[in-house]
Simulated scan of single mutants.
Amino acid sequence: MRAAHRGGGRITVETVYAGHLRGAPEAFAVPMTTVLDLDGHGRIGSDQDQDQDHDSLAKLLTRSGLPADWTPPTP
């Protein structure tokens, strides 16, 4: 986690998502931001869906040395 900010009824959390995809020539590290909505009592009411987190699969794949449109092979 790099930073967290609270404003109004929201918290944003800035992180770095890092790892190594099996079969990829390199490890990856990409910045990511998650938005949390607070309920009326200052508690986390909801986490926006993963699809709404501000990250980039294409960037993750590219930094892993894979094509931006790569999909894992079917077993």
Rank of each mutant, 00 (worst) to 15 (best):
S46V: 00
R2D: 13
D53V: 01
A29I: 02
L36C: 00
P75Q: 02
L60N: 05
I44G: 03
G65H: 06
V35E: 06
S56T: 10
A18S: 08
T71F: 10
T33C: 13
D69W: 12
T71E: 14
L61S: 06
L21K: 05
T62K: 14
F28R: 00
G9W: 07
Q52T: 02
G65Y: 01
P75N: 09
P67F: 01
V30Q: 02
A58L: 03
A3K: 15
M1G: 14
A18P: 04
H5F: 10
G7Q: 15
V16N: 13
Y17R: 14
I11P: 04
H20P: 04
P73L: 04
S56E: 08
Y17E: 12
V35T: 04
L61D: 03
P67D: 06
I44Q: 07
T34W: 06
R63T: 11
L38F: 08
A4F: 15
T62I: 13
L21Q: 02
F28I: 04
Q48A: 14
G23S: 01
P75H: 09
Q52L: 02
V35D: 00
A29S: 13
A4C: 11
T33Q: 11
M1C: 12
G45P: 08
L60R: 03
E14R: 10
D39A: 13
R43H: 04
G23P: 00
Y17I: 12
E14L: 13
G7S: 14
I11Q: 00
G23T: 03
T34Y: 02
G23M: 05
D69I: 08
Y17Q: 05
D53L: 04
T33Y: 10
P73A: 05
T12L: 09
I44K: 05
G7I: 08
R10A: 13
T71R: 15
A3W: 13
T12I: 07
M1D: 10
E14Y: 01
T71V: 15
H5C: 08
D55K: 05
H54Q: 13
H41R: 14
D51T: 10
P73W: 03
H5W: 14
D53M: 12
P73R: 07
T71K: 15
M32K: 04
